[in-house]
Design a binder for these strands. Structure first.
Lengths: 329, 329
DNA sequence: TTGAAAGCGCTACCAA
DNA sequence: TTGGTAGCGCTTTCAA
């Protein structure tokens, strides 16, 4: 910067003012041009580190995730977060902890040392977590997870509404016996979706029949097995709501083996909207999308907002799961 | 740091020596303990920014990717890169450009301002790219992509060997007529895999029959269509090599509709090893894995090595695609 | 065995 | 309209 100043025949102060477009600095266009030309000539690149040391604004957000790969998840969340960050002029520093507490703590430590302006703790599967206490030193938010005691702000999918949406999609087409192959019990996703399923039934005055509801593993294999189970009943369902798209994949298989057509004989709706599966299945699977991208965006925007406007009570934000209609209903 | 020094009754120099475990600083254990105790008491957190300003070592690597989400890709690459980075004490700063040149250039600019120690340019699909020239200011490497003119170091999957591996898996089981539903022509992946297919045939002295080779779209739909085509021939193949796993998904469908069993009547092998599909398919799909994770690792390790040992001629590194045997062969 | 002090590259206050 | 300069928090040289 000194070099630029010298070349332009001005002081470092002036260079700083010009290059940062400081308002009201009253530098004439003439000088500005000279400064900019010098900067270009010297291929001057400002040192963000020095600036940060002085201003204490890192323009960086930390993103800590338990597992990043091989998943319905991750990609979209990061992308959403990244987009929102970029729009706000921030960069994202990411670490994948492999669900290792020790790594998570050091990761937070390293981020804090670098003076990140906020930290996002993201989980692969919707669940309860307890992030390192140190994260409270900056604005922090949980993504796709929540604190049991509600002491951390969080953003999660609205599983209940999602379950209801999925069920509704079926009921609204006239189905009255809707089977439900849920995920493993105990998961927030499973609990929420079941509740949504019940509410949808209730809203239509339909009875809840627990012989129609099974808990699977969330795999194609268990979907296959349980669909067979379901269809073996004397009064089998005319539609099946699957706890995730992989389950639906197995359900398709079981249905087809029995010579049942989708959606004519049995309608199917999935959950998660894993494009890789839902789009490729024949017929293409109608499903409910998890708001990964939106959660990513929301988390970053929340952090930026909090950094700007200060502390508020930890909120628990919920984002809707939109229905994605394709051909299986 | 001054506070810690004061509390411990020493100078900042001593604190720095102790906290950084500077070798040969000859600080007695006694003093060290006092310093560490003070640091703990004051919950002292070193300021990485100040350190970086002084040492010029950011311990940060930039990761620029064209598309991060909804893909076979991304997750695993980032995870591999992140792991290697973590082991070396580095953090990863990621930006997703959405394949926008302008964004890519500013991203590189921002990273350079932050003094990253290296930059990785990753692509979703194996292809030729031309990264911003500024990236040459630091060690840089292309991941899953390459420069047409070879002027950038890169790491890509060994498509040829992969294609050969897949074909071999079939030939070694006695198949002599192996259909190949490739990806769209023109893609490096398609070209390489075709070459591998030919080489495998050649090695066994089998003739190349181009009526057995089709180019599809890499979707289940096109796999379905082309498998039907393939099986309609008078002398249909007894095995099918699919350019990717989604194609295989469609192939399964077509085969099953014709009452053909996998692998008894027709063996199938995919490519990509997309667990979501390959594992869930019935029978589980034998396929060839893209070395996403390894490419991520390699890229980071290469960067770190180059930062340490200086410039070398740009290499084009290739990583093997291992066969993942399941039930379809 | 420990400390004083320079200086990394910038921002921003205060003065001119 | 422009410049001098202190100082952000650390590392590291040199001296004591």
């Amino acid at each position: 910067m000194g070099d630029v100043a010298r070349l332009a025949g001005v002081s470092p102060t002036t260079v700083s003012f010009v290059l940062n477009d400081v308002a009201g600095s009253g530098i004439p266009e003439n000088t500005r041009r000279r400064v900019r030309a010098s900067a270009r000539e010297l291929r001057y690149r400002p040192n963000a580190t020095a600036r940060l040391l002085r201003t204490d604004r890192s323009h960086t957000i930390g993103f800590v995730t338990d597992e990043i790969a091989s998943t319905p998840f991750a990609g979209d969340v990061i992308k959403g977060a990244q987009e929102a960050a970029w729009e706000a002029g921030k960069l994202l520093t990411i670490v994948n902890t492999g669900d290792n507490q020790g790594i998570e703590e050091s990761a937070v430590g390293m981020m804090l040392e670098r003076r990140v302006e906020g930290i996002i703790h993201a989980a692969m599967y919707h669940r309860a977590v307890e992030p390192p206490a140190d994260s409270r030193e900056v604005p922090a938010v949980l993504l796709n997870c929540y604190a049991e005691d509600g002491s951390w702000p969080s953003v999660v999918p609205d599983e209940v509404a999602g379950g209801r949406t999925a069920t509704e999609a079926l009921l609204s087409r006239g189905h009255e016996r809707v089977g439900f192959i849920n995920l493993r019990p105990g998961l927030p996703a499973a609990a929420g979706r079941l509740q949504g399923y019940k509410r949808a039934l209730e809203a239509r005055g339909l009875p809840f029949d627990d012989s129609l509801v099974w808990n699977g593993e969330g795999t194609a294999k268990s979907g296959y097995r349980l669909a067979a189970e379901l269809m073996r009943a004397q009064d089998p369902p005319t539609a099946i709501f699957c706890g995730n798209d992989q389950t639906a994949m197995g359900v398709y298989e079981a249905l087809k083996e029995r010579g049942l057509r989708i959606p004519e004989d049995v309608a199917v709706v999935g959950f998660d909207n894993q494009e890789l599966i839902a789009v490729q299945l024949r017929p293409a699977l109608s499903t409910v999308a998890l708001p990964h991208h939106e959660m990513g965006r929301w988390a970053v925007e929340y952090l930026i907002d909090r950094a700007a406007h200060g502390e508020t009570a930890p909120r628990r934000h919920t984002i809707a799961c939109p229905y994605v209609g394709r051909e299986s209903v």
